[in-house]
Structure formats: structure tokens, C-alpha cells
Simulated assay, not measured.
Amino acid sequence: MTPHNGEALRLVAVRKQYGTVTALDGVSLSLPMGTFTAVMGPSGSGKSTLLHCAAGLDRPTAGRVYVAGAEMTGDDETALTKFRRERIGFVFQRFNLMPTLTVLQNVLLPRRLAGMPVDKARAIATLRRVGLGDRLSHRPAELSGGQQQRVAIARALVTQPQIVFADEPTGALDTRSAREVLALLRETVRRDGQTIVMVTHDPVAAAHADSVIFLADGRLAGSMLAPSPEAVAERLAHLGDDLRVGVRPA
């Protein structure tokens, strides 16, 4: 196993260029295992690009990405897909569940696609942990938005990933469901030592995290420990005034 020194994620001078547009401009950061980190910034700041590059959904133009000490490399998409499936979990805003599959089948799908042994007992136990033990045979259309997102979280956790990336996981939910989903994400960090990186635009959502990383113009613009909604909103309002390059999140 590659040594990771307690690091779940490390980015080294990651740059992403789309034609003449620089979406990420030499971002370096290190996140420890067992932490919940929110990534925030104004529209166009590079937060989604950061997540996509860190999660292996997009390739950086330059720089390196390490997950639990292993460098994300691969000469082709097959190798990159294998890396993601073995190490990374995903939770998306729109759930991305298969409508024709049951809750249990949706949670088992990543292991089937990866050609991994299907551990039905683990999948059921994970669904019970997210409060859906009585919905195993339901299909997504029979669930509320919050319940669908909990299925998506169970699907991300069942492969025991080293890190879970969540892209606006509460963006399609009402306030109550969003609060429940965020509490569940936080619980997986506290109880299981899971590492979560969440992109969000919502200061209330960010306040559930241990720390917040701020981006502006594709660069790191500071970080905040033990965030409150008010403090996060205040920082966002003045983000362009105090841009600092290369700040490492605490």
C-alpha cells in the first residue's frame, strides 16, 4: 500500500486550461483523512473544476493529484476509471440513480460495474445506516428527494472509498431534507473516519464541514476552520479583496 502519512488528498500545482481560459491556476493543497471539507467560491471560481480534477473526472493540464498517497495516473480512460472505482466515491446534486433499479440494486451497481464481488449484506447494512433499511425494494421514483440522495450516499460508501466527493449534494433538496443529508455526511466522518470533500454555494451547508476552502479566479483564496454560516457568508462577500495564493487549508 502506498504510504499516505494521514493525507486523504494532495494537489500539487494543479492547473486546468480550457483553450485560453484558466479554470485552475496552480492549486496546491493537502487534506487529512477523516475530515469534512467544503469548497466554496463565486461562480467561475474553479470549485467544480477542482472537484473534477481531484476526483479523476477530468485530467489536469498540469500538476499532480494524490489520493491516500497514490498518484492519480493512467495512460488511458480505463486505467483512470479503475483508479476511481478502487479509491473514490461520488455524490451528485441530481442523485444519478438508475430509475429501473431498486434501491438495493442501485447501491450494488458500482461493485458490479467494477467486476468486484457483490457484498449484499454490506449494501443492506449501509442502507440501514442511512435510514433506508425498509426501502430496499423501492425504486427511485417512489422515494423523496432526500431519500434518493441517501441512496446515492449509501452507493458511494458501500465500496469503502478512501475519499468521497460531493458536488452540491443538497442543491436539489428542500431545507429539511438538506439538513438531514448534511447531518448524515457529517456522521460518516465522525463515526467511520470517512473523508468528504463537498462543493457547495450554500454557507449553511458549508457550516456542517470541519473547514472551508475558498477559491477565487482559479486560485486558493484562504480557508476557515469551524465555519459558521455568518462567517462563511462574510468571507464570500469579500473574497476578491483578500485573495491569497497558495494558502494551505488547516
Rank of each mutant, 00 (worst) to 15 (best):
M1W: 00
T2L: 15
H4E: 05
H4T: 02
H4N: 11
L9C: 13
R10K: 15
L11K: 00
T20H: 12
T20Y: 13
T22M: 14
D25N: 14
G26Y: 06
V27I: 14
S28G: 03
S28D: 08
L29D: 01
P32Q: 11
M33V: 15
G34E: 02
F36Q: 00
T37I: 09
V39W: 13
G41C: 10
P42W: 15
P42D: 02
S43M: 07
G44I: 07
S45K: 08
G46Y: 10
S48T: 15
T49Q: 05
H52L: 11
C53T: 12
A54N: 01
A55G: 06
L57M: 06
D58K: 05
T61E: 03
G63V: 02
V65R: 05
V67E: 15
D75A: 14
A79C: 05
L80S: 09
T81S: 12
F83E: 02
R85P: 07
R85Q: 15
R85W: 08
R87W: 09
I88G: 06
F92V: 05
P99A: 02
L101Q: 01
V103I: 05
Q105N: 01
N106A: 02
V107W: 02
V107H: 02
P110V: 04
K120D: 05
R122H: 05
A123L: 02
T126M: 10
R129T: 03
G131P: 10
G131K: 01
G131D: 07
H138D: 11
R139N: 00
A141S: 07
S144A: 06
V151P: 00
V151E: 09
I153M: 02
R155P: 10
L157F: 12
V158M: 10
T159G: 14
T170S: 05
A172H: 01
A172T: 08
A183T: 14
L184R: 01
V189E: 07
R190K: 02
R191H: 13
Q194F: 07
V199W: 11
V199E: 07
H201L: 01
A205L: 08
A205V: 01
A209I: 12
S211Q: 15
S211H: 12
S211L: 14
F214T: 03
L220R: 14
G222M: 01
G222A: 02
L225C: 12
S228D: 06
S228M: 12
A231G: 13
A237E: 13
A237D: 15
H238V: 00
R248W: 11
P249T: 02
A250V: 15
